[in-house]
Design a binder for these strands. Sequence first.
DNA 1: ATGTCAATATACTATTGA
Length: 259
Amino acid sequence: MSIVIATWNVNSIRARMAHALAFLEARQPDVLLLQELKGLEFPALEFEALGYHSVAIGQKSYNGVAILSKLPIEMVTNKLAGSDEDTHARYIETIIDTPTKLRVVCIYLPNGNPVGTDKFLYKLQWMERLIVQMAAWKNDPIPTIIGGDFNVIPEDIDCDKPANWLRDALFQPETRDRYRAMLAMGWTDAFRALYPDTRDAFTFWDYFRQAFERNRGIRIDHFLLSPALAPRLQACEIDKTPRAQEKPSDHTPVLVTLN
DNA sequence: ATGTCAATATACTATTGA
């Protein structure tokens, strides 16, 4: 008895609907986390026709996240605690009956570029708020999985060439320190735990300069497992198929299998 | 500095965010 959870930044659900439906048909994950919906409308009925319930929080033009689930799903909140001013649609927290309860959290962590602006400070503050939440969940009886676009390049081996990313918010020491603080608390990076030395395993490639064809990418879409959940990690796979199709998202899906 | 894509307003083009 195992459960498969996938995450994918689709870069507009409207533009990527055919890709999303094809991915669900091909891989049949039990749960799919989506980021960067880029609109207020969410096509819940089309996903329901494939047997997926959904919860979504949209925003005009930017951001937006959703969770699709074949299993019963209950929305807990769509706001990350710790700020009254933050109106971005970047967070959904749910409980899914697997049939034992599992806390499934979908995040679209702020990009933070350019460094030295309010955007970068917002990113760091958002990470601080998430860390506070993760500390609270660490000892909760319900195991937790956090998946999504973290906009963090954790280590040098998670990019094609560190020199290309030195000025990028995704690669700053402040950013990486906060990600490492999450791991230091006892959370597990699912992909890296299974493949500690694997290089050139990326989840995002820029649209320009034939970055995908040359595999000049970064690994920024992650699954973090709470200490109680980590022993149930079975597999983690980056599926590059959707990125190779016509008019793709710049990200490709990651799938994790839990027993 | 460059490059590409998607959404939107400024609307057969420019701006913004990524």
